[in-house]
Amino acid sequence: MKRSLPDMQSPKIEVRGLVKSFGPKKVLQELDLDVPRGQSLVVIGGSGTGKSVLIKCILGLVRPDAGSIKVDGEEVVGASRSTMERLRAKFGMLFQGAALFDSLPVWENVAFGLLAARKLPRGEARARAIDVLGRVGLPAEVADLFPAELSGGMQKRVGLARAIATEPEIIFFDEPTTGLDPIMADVINELIRRCVRDLGATALSITHDMASVRKIADRVAMLYAGKIVWEGPVAEIDHSGNAFVEQFINGRAEGPIRVAQAANG
């Protein structure tokens, strides 16, 4: 097995020349992106600009047409199923709609990765699940409820608990605050911030919620027309000097971003 040892300076995730089309729709066009080790990078961009596709390519759920994605120096694109399974053990993911398994109680959702990948006995996994639920501010009583019995905010918390239960090295957040009220959104942002810091994980998030960006990002990248058009530290986002970023963060209809074209991506 060839595996170059990653040095601490190299990025955790390295995306080069990523291309993905769905039929005539060109979603990603020669996209380059680095996610630095131990940092939280947030990709912003309008709806339908391919943010989700980018994450799904890195997770190996969508096969890109061309390009390279390296995680710890290991190639994801075209990787064998066993390589992919090994790489995925490093990942945790919070899905937009939480994507909880509704046939399983909350604790089994949280412990799913522990039961599947680590082969933990069920009693032990349950105890671990309740412990992780505590970390996202949920009492032990919710452990035996089913996802359908929870509110949207609680489902997001359970989703977060499931994403961090296996203590992954990289956590992906897909629109973590969509569909939540501003206060609950702030609670979730706070939890994300704390969980990522406690685990020392690398985080890659996608969102169009600027409040969320300012809270959870170390660095920000702006995706437009299949490319990263700006990338920099979160502190510089208000004086980026980039017309796309300025239009986006101020939410203006006029500017270089044409909505018809954005909706096309």
Binding site: K56, L59, G60, L61, E85, R88, A89, F91, G92, M93, F95, Q96, G97, A99, L100, F101, D102, F112, G113, A116, A117, R162, T166
Partner: peptide, 17 residues
Amino acid sequence: TMRVTEQIDALSTLSTD
């Protein structure tokens, strides 16, 4: 329903085929 609510993708990310 599992497909359209991303539960199948979630299975894959939790090391389950």
